[in-house]
Amino acid sequence: MHLDHKDTFPERYTYSAAAPVRPDGTRRALRIGLGGPVGTGKTATVAALCRALRDELSIAVVTNDIYTREDAEFLLREAVLPPERISAVETGACPHTAIRDDISANLEAVEDLEAAVGAEGNGPLDLVLVESGGDNLTATFSKGLVDAQIFVIDVAGGDDIPRKGGPGVTSADLLVINKTDLAPYVGVDLEGMARDAKAQRGELPVAFTALKAENGVRPVADWVRARLAEWTVGPA
């Protein structure tokens, strides 16, 4: 793993997202982070993405739970991926630290997944999803860890969240507003949320989802496919 010439790729010392190629010169897997408050559907989005994309892409998942392995175990129980493609990072009561300020444990989990899946002879990974433990509206992923990030909120958390903004809402590469099927029951105005999100995010995309519905994750899956297409044609 450490055989590459150090002067050619000095950034490779950290194997961070800054280095887009593997030691053998091929382009590494695209890394997408998913963050957002507790209970908005991050794990459900990851599970649905795996189901939607696993037949066309080689996928692995890193979870960052706050105090259990519950998210990893949910994904295992749902059998969205084989166990060797799911890894849980422990975050010491600070999930945002593990995805932003000290990304070392997550980088190791990503590398180990790339190595383990590669060693099985299944070819390289195409996509690694890094799921944050449920946290606050200020949680964002380091650019050293992921290439793009998705922020997941839901309509039941209140329609004022897009208006309130915060780094996740304003700067995530994709804002997912989940549980649109609940909008009539909680008196939420989806068009108002869309307007507020537009005001905060400008041209950055927003996806409204209802994961309980058939193909509910489709807008997110399509966005991931588009990111992957861009990633694959990038300079190796």
């Binding site: 010491g92 600070c94 630290t97 593990a98 300020d101 990304i103 070392s104």
Partner: peptide, 11 residues
Amino acid sequence: GRFPAGGHAHS
């Protein structure tokens, strides 16, 4: 304590 070497997750 903020040196990014993983210590924050250990007690």
